[in-house]
Amino acid sequence: MTDAPLIAILDDEPQIRSLLVGALEDAGFRTAAFARAADLEAALRRISPDACLIDLGLPDSDGLALVHRLATESGAAIIIVSGRAQVQDRVTGLELGADDYIIKPFEPAEVVARIRARLRKPAPGPARSDAVTRFAGWSADFGRYILTSPDGTETPISHAEAEVLRIFLDAPRRLITRSQMLDLLGGAAGDSFDRAMDVRISRLRGKLGEDPKNPRLIKTIYGAGYIFMAEIE
């Protein structure tokens, strides 16, 4: 189907690319597979994938640097698929903007499930993905992944940051616990998720022009979670 989500696959191992392409297409996704980072980046000038599966061990690029670039410059969900199993590798990948981290070897069904979780449509409400949502003089365009400030300045946000903002906009002035964040984002419990969440919220606050010592919009309730203080217009 032409409207099926498009998944970009970047891995220099032909067997891995073939395995992922087969599993994803059998599950109803469209795919575009690449062996080199340069080929993927060139293709991104003409295609807009819904998610990117990125191996870190690339022959022509630093995989983590690429993850960070894609997370900040594209609206795609970024999922690392790597043989690097150390906790620090997972933490670093998530801190740099990845939405998820899958360790090789993997079950193809797990990759399909993780992608579906990342691309799951948000519940109906103020922050629908096709809407421009306004709050406290700001607007969030989830179709273009753009935040517009009260003075009209546009700032891109990553898919990961947009997911967090959607959660806040769907529940203004209500406590959202870290456990609820975990459930809504489909993450894996543990220090890596907690650190990645802290980074996402810190970046989102920065893009909203928040004073890190006294944020107005995203309040931290220590030991409990967060409250988004703005009314949705």
Rank of each mutant, 00 (worst) to 15 (best):
R173T: 09
F106A: 09
P212V: 06
L6T: 03
V132I: 14
S158F: 00
E25H: 03
I176N: 04
I102S: 07
P124S: 07
A230C: 07
Y222R: 05
T2H: 14
L58S: 08
A42V: 11
H68S: 10
D11Q: 01
V91Q: 15
G190I: 13
T92V: 10
A140L: 14
D39Y: 03
L165E: 05
V132T: 09
Q86H: 12
T220H: 10
L53M: 06
G206Y: 05
A136R: 15
R216V: 10
R46K: 04
G63S: 05
D151H: 11
A77L: 06
G209F: 08
S129C: 01
E154T: 08
D12P: 04
G186H: 12
I102N: 07
N214D: 15
E41M: 15
Q88V: 13
R173D: 09
D198L: 06
V67E: 00
A77R: 11
A162I: 04
I16V: 15
E210K: 13
D211H: 13
P5D: 00
V81R: 02
E95R: 14
S158C: 02
G187D: 15
A85N: 11
L217I: 07
A162D: 02
E107C: 09
A117G: 11
L58W: 01
D151T: 09
G83P: 13
I167V: 15
L70H: 06
L6A: 01
F142W: 03
F168V: 11
D62K: 05
W138L: 08
G93V: 13
I157P: 02
R174E: 14
A109R: 10
V81T: 15
F228Q: 12
F193N: 07
D62V: 14
I157Y: 11
V67R: 00
A8T: 03
E107K: 09
